[in-house]
């Protein structure tokens, strides 16, 4: 049986969004007997500058909708264009990154097509009948739900960082087909007066080791030790929501339900209590080492190795040791 999978490839300013690559990696590894196609929308400038990367994604086939009306992502215009494409092409599974734009477009597309949609998934499987089993956290991560849909394509959005991006060398260039449609009566009625991109979230995918700090770090000055240790280990720094709210770290490095999901080989948590919302963001880490002075902190029972120790003095010792 050949399962037809379509992945929406998000391109921002000529760059392929990382989450799109993560979804492709996951689908190629886990969806057996599936052919994986992609679709990308954008204006000429954006598509042309991303074209080289797009061809290297290892897709079976890539469809491109290129029109200068697609310069700014408008959920209404994008959803309607995708809907026209789906009316002409049959798929069993449709996946999109749950970025801020993806979360705007996907529900509109599902609504237009009258199909089910499972948002913000952290787990995806295809069962023996080709049905998508989409797992997502609910109630702030306190409960996981696996959701199926009785309409085709089975549609889900995927949390950025939930899956690992596996860079694979691909020998064959992806076949490309341009899909054209009429944009009559389909233009944005919104006027963007001002737009400012935020610094991209940390490039977590390439980081094998993450050093994270929470409230147990006590203050902003101490939090610099997290950055310093990360630097010495060639790791990436991260912070819990509480530490970000204290102003000790930037939001771009926040890990958890409302921040990023990460999947490193090793996650070292210093002084993080491990609320459910935080644990949701690190479920796909290979190994979690938690350091906490409080042996009853939730993270101590959720980690692979739980070390009862004062986080700040350990940071000082480690930095001293590694700086020698």
């Amino acid at each position: 049986m050949n399962n037809r999978v379509l992945i929406y490839i998000e391109v921002n300013n000529g760059v392929v969004a990382r989450v799109s690559k993560e979804i492709i990696s996951h689908a190629k590894q886990n969806f057996l007997q599936s052919s994986i196609d992609g679709i990308v929308l954008g204006d000429e400038q954006s598509i042309d500058s991303a074209l080289f990367d797009l061809k290297q994604l290892g897709l079976n086939k890539l469809y491109i909708i290129k029109d200068n009306l697609l310069d700014m992502t408008n959920a209404k215009v994008y959803a309607n264009a995708l809907s026209v494409f789906l009316e002409n092409n049959q798929y069993d599974v449709l996946l999109m990154g749950a970025t801020s734009d993806g979360r705007d477009i996907a529900p509109r597309l599902a609504s237009k097509q009258d199909i089910g949609l499972t948002a913000d998934c952290t787990g995806l499987e295809v069962d023996e009948n080709g049905n998508l089993l989409a797992t997502r956290p609910t109630y702030g991560g306190q409960l996981m739900a696996t959701i199926v849909s009785k309409t085709k394509p089975n549609f889900a959005t995927v949390r950025p960082g939930a899956f690992k991006y596996l860079q694979q060398s691909c020998n064959n260039e992806t076949e490309i087909e341009y899909f054209s449609l009429s944009f009559d009566g389909l233009c944005s009625l919104l006027e963007v007066l001002y737009s400012e991109n935020k610094p991209a979230a940390e490039d977590w995918t390439c980081s094998e080791i993450i050093v994270a700090g929470g409230l147990g770090i006590q203050n902003k000055e101490n939090f610099n030790l997290i950055y310093k240790l990360a630097d010495l280990l060639g790791a990436k720094p991260a912070a819990s929501r509480a530490a970000v709210e204290q102003g000790w770290a930037e939001q771009s490095i926040q890990v958890g339900q409302t921040g990023n999901s990460v999947s490193p080989k090793l996650y070292i948590a210093f002084g993080i209590s491990g609320a459910m919302q935080h644990m949701t963001g690190i479920t796909n880490a290979d190994k979690i080492v938690a350091i906490n002075i409080n042996k009853d902190a939730p993270i101590m029972s959720g980690a692979d190795i739980a070390i009862e120790c004062d986080a700040v003095s350990l940071l000082h010792t480690l930095i001293g040791k590694l700086s020698d």
């Binding site: 306190q142 409960l143 739900a145 696996t146 309409t151 949701t280 739980a306």
Partner: peptide
Amino acid sequence: PTQVRKAFRPLNNRESIRI
């Protein structure tokens, strides 16, 4: 169209070695 096939509390299947 969507139905919850199963709901579960996130399982902790890590070893939790204490030091």
